[in-house]
Design a protein around this nucleic acid. Structure first.
Lengths: 162, 162
DNA sequence: TTTAATGTAACTATAATGGTTACATTAAAA
DNA sequence: TTTTAATGTAACCATTATAGTTACATTAAA
């Protein structure tokens, strides 16, 4: 594991919670989400706890426990999800400060920081144009709406799991 | 060290080579660049060898050895530098495939891939608007053009180093 | 009281970044 | 032809982020 798939897993989890709620399933458990993502439930709980701090989801304990969206899926943008995860710029400055005895070393930080801000803002603006609901709808279109039973079957299978 | 500062180091090196050539210094050595970046010369050589494969720089062996730009600094964009480093999207899909028994797991890959492409293209378009020369000029402005001796002094200091 | 989930600590594995040493190779200049 | 000062590159090591896993305390409705 190396590249940053945290946003992907978070969107996967939110779409799953949204769809599960759409079919009247109530709070979605980390185990059922993990079965779809094919990872460990703790990985899902850790990620969702970050989204809970940003008030994108609510966790429920006791019975029935699980996770629900705080807001309609149509009101949650991918940018909000990315921000909730605390993902910063993909471009970092020097890990240790360059030489201040060189005019380049002295000023490259602020200059590149400004440029990176422009690039990151452009990417953020793009992510802000997509919502969880749009992503979910597109997923369902691509996995063929003519098989509406697929998700229901999946949730039944999950519930039988050890 | 963790975040990705490879683009930053590469821009630093290219700006340094460009400025050194501007003052008639000839090929810049990895040792002098490393002194400005404050890292090990091998780190610079490794990065520059990737830029050489993309034909952004030329390395010279023998005497005098060092590095020069293949093209004017005004013709090298930050996007070309990023591409030369093989930096992909900051957003990765799942590290292992999700469940194909779930409509979300089945289709989330292509959907997010399309969205990530839009966001990455927006960031790339922004980086393509900045060149090494523009970055260098801005650095020199910020470190005060009224002290033109700073860089010359730095190169002299570097040459005295062990 | 039972039950089925979350909350969270602790440990491990893997990979990327980058720092370092060592040494072979190169090509101009003496 | 030898010297010299650099690049080219392999081989390590340290640090960090991601994420997989186990274990167990906590929660709250039934």
């Amino acid at each position: 594991m190396s590249a940053n798939s945290r946003l992907t897993i978070a969107v996967h989890a939110l779409a799953w919670i949204g769809l599960y709620s759409e079919i009247g399933g109530g709070p979605a458990t980390s185990a059922s989400i993990a079965a779809s993502v094919r990872t460990n439930p703790v990985v899902i709980r850790r990620l969702l706890s970050e989204l809970r701090e940003a008030e994108l989801v609510v966790s429920h304990r006791g019975t029935p426990a699980g996770w629900t969206l705080s807001r309609p899926a149509a009101d949650i943008t991918l940018l909000e999800v990315k921000n909730a995860l605390g993902e910063g710029s993909p471009f970092a400055l020097h890990s240790s400060a360059p030489s201040v005895n060189c005019p380049i070393g002295l000023s490259i930080g602020p200059v590149l920081s400004d440029i990176y801000d422009v690039a990151e803002k452009a990417a953020n603006d793009a992510l802000a144009r997509f919502t969880i609901q749009q992503s979910l709808d597109e997923m369902l279109v691509r996995s063929n709406r003519t098989k509406p039973s697929l998700f229901v079957n999946f949730t039944k299978t999950v519930q039988k799991m050890p």
